[in-house]
């Protein structure tokens, strides 16, 4: 072999090595974050931590019950608002592929996906918080619902597109009215894809802080009134992590672990179901 060929092969091997090295390096940060959060958080989590509200600085104990309840309620209300809208819009887009409204609506969904979350927070502040005269969990839910919409619409549209058209034709040929065909035949056939879209969208908004800063605002006490300010896990982490007190940092570490586990679990379940049903999102 000539020197030049050896040089070229060597270069190729070195490149391959570099690529493998870069790929391996880039999963390190995630492992580091997981490791650190688990290490710091695991010692703080116990039954007391999950069922009590935070104590003032200086007192021992205290937990994140208010944030857990608040996160759950805010995300629940957001899902109740966003899921029907997102699925129906997805049905429209998959049924009317070429209409003018579908084109503009798709564009709007694309734009919505790219809007920074803090901007949505500002806008909801002017739509709901100011007219209603105060911060409320409901306004936070609506901000999160707007952020869920793009994923829901996209996953519904993509899933329904992949179903064979003969399915719809057969149902229509049997004399079923259009809405029944859509809701009773087409949707159940694509339910796995739509469900994973729902879970993905919940996982995306469960960790969102920025849109809640000016809407749900946070609340140190246990509250289940959605027309009043409410605490949520990401808000609690943000407020306590940036505070100067060690007690509060401990609370924030525990809350981080709970939030991280919740979000990662949702993502992993989604991944498993999508692989099982072979869905592209």
């Amino acid at each position: 072999m000539s020197v030049q060929i050896k040089y070229r092969i060597g270069k190729s091997t070195a490149f391959k090595g570099l690529i493998i090295f870069l790929a391996c390096i880039s999963i390190l940060p995630l492992l580091a974050i997981l490791f650190y959060i688990i290490k710091e958080g695991l010692t703080k989590i116990n039954w007391h931590f999950l069922t009590h509200i935070p104590k003032p600085v200086g007192e021992v104990g205290g937990g994140i019950a208010n944030a857990l309840l608040g996160s759950f309620l805010i995300v629940l209300v957001a899902s109740v608002i966003a899921i029907p809208i997102g699925i129906l819009c997805g049905i429209y887009l998959s049924e009317n592929k070429t209409s003018k409204l579908a084109y503009w609506s798709r564009l709007a969904v694309d734009i919505l996906q790219g809007i920074p979350s803090i901007v949505i927070g500002i806008v909801i502040y002017f739509w709901l918080v100011k007219p209603l005269g105060g911060f409320s969990a409901l306004s936070g839910s609506i901000a999160l619902a707007i952020m869920m919409l793009p994923i829901l619409v996209r996953s519904t549209e993509e899933t329904l597109k992949m179903l064979p058209p003969s399915l719809k034709e057969a149902a229509l040929a049997l004399g079923m009215p259009y809405h029944r065909v859509m809701l009773k035949v087409i949707l159940p056939c694509g339910i796995s894809g739509i469900l994973s879209g729902i879970m993905l969208s919940i996982a995306r908004v469960a960790g969102e802080t920025a849109p809640l800063l000016f809407t749900a605002f946070g609340n140190p006490f246990l509250s289940s009134n959605i027309f009043r300010p409410m605490q949520s896990l990401p808000l609690l982490i943000f407020n306590y992590a940036t505070s100067p007190y060690d007690d509060w940092h401990d609370l924030a570490w525990g809350a981080s672990l709970v939030l991280l586990m919740w979000v990662l679990l949702l993502n992993i379940i989604t991944k498993i179901t999508t692989r099982r049903w072979n869905i592209q999102l």
């Binding site: 999963i27 940060p29 995630l30 974050i33 960790g207 982490i237 992590a241 570490w253 990662l264 992993i268």
Partner: peptide, 20 residues
């Protein structure tokens, strides 16, 4: 793993960044 990087909430990145 790379896809999970996108799933971690940004407030947790901030917290980890602040302390580590």
């Amino acid at each position: 793993t790379v896809e999970l990087i996108a799933a971690v909430p940004s407030v947790i990145y901030g917290f980890w960044g602040l302390f580590v």
